[in-house]
Simulated scan of single mutants.
Amino acid sequence: MLDREGPVLLYVQIADQIRERIASGDLAPGSAVPSEVELVKTYEVTRQTVRRAIKLLKEEGAVYSEQGRGTFVGPKSAPQAPRQVPVYQQIANEIIEQIKAGEYVPNRLIPSEKTLVQRFDRAPGTIRQTVAYLRELGWVFTVPQKGTYVSKREDWPES
């Protein structure tokens, strides 16, 4: 819980709480720190506030970031925890299951980017990555200026 009316800045309080999670072992060396989106939601603050907290922790050497992968506990030399399935693939897998179940039918639109952003509570870039992945696998195709449609059943990848 953040003290929003006290003298300690919010980003310092967030950094303190993450530091406490590291000290308690809740966030072990090499494990991923929750994403910016998750921290924004958890603490109900702006993304800038979260970024300042992470920056403070980086300056202290408590965490480090890798472009496109995330922020991790400890120095870069700390062994990383096994990699999880990326979020965009998790979302894609859910949509694939809905296609297989007939919730989204061939030659019909899948939900819009805006709808998927709201449904999965993720950034537009993550949703675009999800749709690109679905397209790459052959589950959907995009018609410029119209939208993204479910592929014909015969074009679905082998399961």
Rank of each mutant, 00 (worst) to 15 (best):
Q48L: 11
I95C: 05
Q67Y: 14
E44V: 04
E158V: 14
L134V: 05
R47M: 04
E20V: 11
S65P: 02
T46Y: 02
V50G: 00
V85S: 12
I22G: 00
T142V: 10
P82L: 13
P144M: 10
N93I: 05
D121I: 00
I18K: 06
K55C: 04
W139D: 05
S65I: 06
G25E: 01
I22H: 03
Q80M: 15
A53H: 00
I18H: 10
R19H: 11
Q48S: 14
V143T: 13
L27D: 02
K114R: 14
R69A: 09
R108A: 14
V33Q: 06
S151Y: 07
P82T: 13
T49M: 04
L134D: 04
A15T: 11
V8Y: 08
L116D: 03
E59R: 09
G125S: 13
Q89K: 14
A81C: 12
G30Y: 04
V50K: 01
R135F: 09
A92F: 07
F72R: 07
G74I: 03
W156P: 04
S31Q: 03
K114I: 06
F141P: 02
G6C: 13
L56T: 13
L9F: 11
Y11F: 15
R4W: 01
R51G: 07
I99Y: 06
V117A: 04
G74C: 01
L134K: 08
R52N: 15
R122W: 02
P124R: 08
L2K: 06
D26M: 04
Q145L: 12
F120M: 02
F72G: 03
P7L: 15
Q98S: 12
V63N: 01
Y64L: 02
V150S: 07
K76V: 12
P75I: 07
V105G: 10
E97N: 13
K58M: 14
K41V: 00
D16N: 14
D121S: 02
G30W: 04
K58I: 10
A32I: 05
G70R: 07
S112A: 11
Q89V: 13
F72C: 01
E38F: 05
A92L: 04
K55F: 09
L137H: 06
S35L: 02
Q129R: 12
D16S: 10
I95F: 02
V45Q: 08
V105T: 13
S31I: 00
V105F: 06
L27P: 01
I54K: 01
E97C: 07
I22A: 05
A28L: 12
V131W: 02
Q98K: 15
S112W: 05
I96E: 15
A62K: 13
T49E: 00
A23C: 09
G147A: 06
T71F: 03
G25H: 09
L2A: 10
V37R: 14
